[in-house]
């Protein structure tokens, strides 16, 4: 009886940890099959079997002991973290380290805390880099130096608006509409200069909003058989694209109907 109680407590602790692990991975934008694979690997390293069901906002996790009939189930909310390729790589490596080095639960948990508490990227640095990236896109699509400069500053204003509204926890569809409107409106000032590539500046100023990761993850999930969450991700990505289009259309209606 005492032994079963101890095992139950141990399984509960493992279930709590893996639930946290997978919620961080799903929240950071990792595609589902990788999350499932890594969580199962972590379970194997800790001596338990792991079964997972995922959806867009929640995940269900069942952990059972291989030796005893003890099992534990968790239903967890997926937190909306920003996309993080760093967490994706680090947390995947952690599951391999746990298996290869036969780490204990305490050791894995300690490393996990260390990884997720690493300093996040400076948001202002991200703002500058996103603006540079959009200016580069403008050049790739044939924009001249003036169009590139306008795209750079217009993206800066749009991205800053997005960061500010997201910090204020405004609905993310509204954030996309407002950010697309502000960025494209600022870029539309290039039209008044009469430069030939002003329309390229207008079109590329909103590219920072394209939800690339959800679109790619959605396709990967569907091809890997996680059709429900794959469709959810694609629908979510399309909703964001529609929001972006609404924001840009408002600018075009106000400024240049003929581009619509």
């Amino acid at each position: 009886m005492q032994e079963t109680k101890k095992t139950q407590q141990h399984i509960s602790e493992i279930a709590d940890f893996i639930a946290r692990y997978l919620s961080y991975m799903l929240g950071a934008g990792v595609h589902t099959s990788r999350v499932v694979r890594n969580s199962k690997r972590l379970g194997t390293a800790l001596g338990v079997d792991v079964s997972i069901h995922t959806s867009q906002k929640t995940a269900t996790l069942s952990v059972s002991s291989a030796d005893t009939p003890v099992h534990d189930t968790r239903v967890i909310d997926i937190p909306p973290f920003p996309i993080s390729f760093e967490w994706n790589a680090d947390l995947s490596a952690l599951s391999w380290a746990a298996l290869d080095d036969n780490l204990s639960l305490e050791a894995v948990r300690g490393k996990f805390e260390e990884l997720v508490s690493k300093p996040k990227m400076n948001p202002f640095f991200v703002l500058l880099m996103a603006s540079l990236a959009n200016a580069s896109f403008c050049r790739l699509f044939g924009g001249d130096i003036w169009a590139m400069l306008v795209t750079f500053t217009a993206t800066m204003i749009g991205f800053f608006t997005r960061q500010h509204l997201m910090r204020r926890k405004v609905n993310h569809y509204i954030v996309f509409i407002v950010s697309a409107f502000v960025a494209s409106l600022c870029a539309s000032s290039a039209l008044s200069l009469g430069i030939e590539t002003a329309e390229i500046a207008l079109a590329t100023s909103v590219l920072f909003l394209v939800p690339g990761v959800p679109l790619i993850n959605g396709i990967i999930d569907i091809t890997d058989g996680h059709i429900q969450i794959g469709i959810s991700r694609i629908v979510n990505a399309f909703m964001l694209i529609i929001s972006m289009a609404i924001g840009m259309s408002i600018t075009l209606i106000l400024v240049k109907d003929s581009l619509l």
Partner: peptide, 21 residues
């Protein structure tokens, strides 16, 4: 007011191009 500042920065870019145009 950082938002006002980046709007002014954007206007400065427009201003530089106006010098030439």
């Amino acid at each position: 007011n950082f938002f006002a500042f980046i709007l002014i920065l954007h206007w400065a870019v427009i201003a530089v191009s106006k010098v030439e145009i």
